[in-house]
Simulated scan of single mutants.
Amino acid sequence: MVKRLGQRFKQVYRQGPVETRLQEAALSQWYRTSVGQELLAAEVDLISRAISGRFGSMMVQLDSGAHEPLFEKRLFGAGTLVSQLENRAPCPVICAKPENLPFEPESIDMLLMHHTLDICENPYQVIREGAIALKPGGVLIVLGFNPYSLWGLRALIQGRGEGAGIWHSRFLRSGRVEDWMHLLDFELERHEKHLFYPPYRRPSWLQRLNFGGRVQRRLLPFTGAVYLLVGYKQVLGRLPAAEKRVKRGFLEPVVSINSKVRHK
């Protein structure tokens, strides 16, 4: 029993889904459920607050199956979705893997990873690609599922049976993601946990459990179903260039540029 739980813990919290494309398709269907719609609405509000007061010419969203932009369009000149599935999102869509982003270095103002680390093959490589593509001072926003929550507990108990949907995802510890961001020279601005309600599908249950969610938020603030990380790429300072000294001969007189030559 203990060995089986250990194997399931490793599968759910570390390995992630077997096939990224299939998991994105499964999440795309799950986002259409009542709980999925509640989750997207809450995350749109979180993203809106995270980018409040920021402006830029280019924002990229690494999609996980939502197939729609989750940021306010008027704040950015151009918004692009990166997906592994063809979809009809109301903005440009690029089919690519998040571990190999097709953008020039330092060409993006803001990068949103919407549960990308939960379904990709190599989470650290995804953040590294984001660090390369972001401009100095660019903002990275990461949304992921919290393993230390009721949602993470259900994923651990339910396992990865057929039709598991969201429970196939990797529930990655937010502290680990924060360490990766620091390693790649990101200055962390926000580290928050949100959505304090059980993963039930019936809206009537969600309304009845509002009080319990408020108590959970107050007493156990680290048990939110979703974590939000916001960091910006640091601009490394440059040392001033050393003054160039003009070489002169041993017997050559010293005459500065600003000195006045007196003629007799």
Results as ranks from 00 to 15, higher is better:
197 Y>A: 04
246 V>G: 08
28 S>K: 03
68 E>P: 00
108 I>E: 03
18 V>N: 09
257 I>D: 11
43 E>W: 01
209 L>W: 15
241 A>F: 09
63 D>K: 00
240 P>G: 07
218 R>H: 11
17 P>E: 00
30 W>V: 00
108 I>D: 05
143 L>W: 01
23 Q>V: 04
112 L>N: 01
88 R>I: 09
143 L>N: 00
51 I>T: 12
78 A>L: 14
17 P>K: 07
208 R>I: 08
29 Q>H: 09
109 D>A: 09
129 E>N: 14
41 A>V: 01
14 R>M: 11
126 V>Y: 00
179 D>L: 13
124 Y>N: 07
59 M>S: 08
55 F>H: 09
115 H>E: 02
78 A>Q: 14
230 V>H: 07
188 L>R: 10
125 Q>P: 04
148 Y>E: 09
97 K>N: 13
126 V>P: 04
209 L>F: 15
238 R>Y: 09
110 M>A: 15
67 H>G: 02
34 S>R: 02
146 N>E: 05
173 R>A: 14
112 L>T: 00
193 K>Y: 15
161 G>A: 09
131 A>V: 05
80 T>H: 10
23 Q>I: 03
48 S>D: 14
215 V>W: 13
79 G>A: 12
246 V>L: 15
258 N>V: 10
260 K>N: 09
136 P>F: 04
245 R>P: 00
11 Q>D: 05
98 P>S: 13
191 H>C: 12
55 F>K: 07
242 A>V: 11
62 L>C: 08
71 F>I: 02
223 T>S: 15
207 Q>T: 13
62 L>E: 00
136 P>C: 05
188 L>T: 12
99 E>H: 12
208 R>A: 06
210 N>R: 14
203 P>N: 08
245 R>V: 14
40 L>E: 03
130 G>N: 08
182 H>R: 14
184 L>E: 13
237 G>C: 10
192 E>F: 12
93 V>C: 10
74 R>H: 12
111 L>E: 03
246 V>Y: 12
228 L>F: 09
22 L>T: 06
203 P>K: 07
41 A>S: 10
42 A>T: 00
129 E>I: 13
243 E>I: 10
134 L>G: 08
259 S>A: 15
162 E>Q: 13
33 T>L: 00
167 W>M: 05
179 D>F: 08
148 Y>N: 07
246 V>C: 12
54 R>Q: 13
225 A>I: 02
208 R>S: 04
162 E>K: 12
198 P>L: 02
177 V>K: 07
38 E>C: 01
16 G>I: 04
121 E>W: 00
64 S>I: 01
245 R>Y: 07
26 A>T: 03
208 R>W: 15
9 F>I: 14
57 S>L: 12
120 C>G: 11
141 I>N: 02
117 L>R: 03
104 E>S: 15
144 G>P: 04
211 F>R: 08
109 D>N: 10
258 N>K: 10
231 G>Y: 04
12 V>H: 05
191 H>T: 07
30 W>Q: 03
213 G>E: 05
109 D>E: 08
37 Q>H: 06
129 E>G: 15
201 R>N: 11
10 K>R: 14
20 T>R: 13
245 R>C: 05
23 Q>L: 05
